[in-house]
């Protein structure tokens, strides 16, 4: 696996993403949920909202890098607030 240049930070990042995906898959099987329409006026399931959260978080981190600088823990706090908002209102 050396050709993929793995490091602990990137490995932990992907382990967290994979764990979230597995958790949401199990949740979707165990507790199926009907889609709902939120403020975006689109039907979303838990999986859709997770996708919107992850994609949005990536852009929040990039914007943080460009505007504030490489201080990602604070960007992560913004991402958590964003995630809560997406799961509540989207």
């Amino acid at each position: 696996m050396d050709w993929m240049a793995w490091t602990w930070p990137t490995a932990i990042f992907f382990i967290v993403i994979a764990s979230i995906l597995v958790t949401f898959t199990i949740l979707a099987i165990k507790f199926p949920e009907a889609p709902r329409v939120g403020i975006l006026r689109i039907e979303t399931t838990r999986g859709d909202r997770l996708f919107i959260t992850l994609l949005g978080s990536a852009f929040i981190n990039l914007a943080w890098l460009g505007v504030v600088g490489a201080n990602q823990p604070f960007a992560l706090v913004v991402c958590l607030v964003y995630a809560a908002a997406v799961f509540r209102w989207v």
Partner: peptide, 30 residues
């Protein structure tokens, strides 16, 4: 996954790589 990992390195060959963290992303969006 490999491309994502490479993006955190100053990399020419796999043997000559140096961890730079988010530097390339900062340069790119800035």
């Amino acid at each position: 996954l490999a491309v994502f990992n490479y993006s955190f390195f100053d990399i020419f060959t796999l043997q000559d790589r140096f961890w730079v963290g988010l530097e390339w992303y900062g340069d790119l969006v800035g």
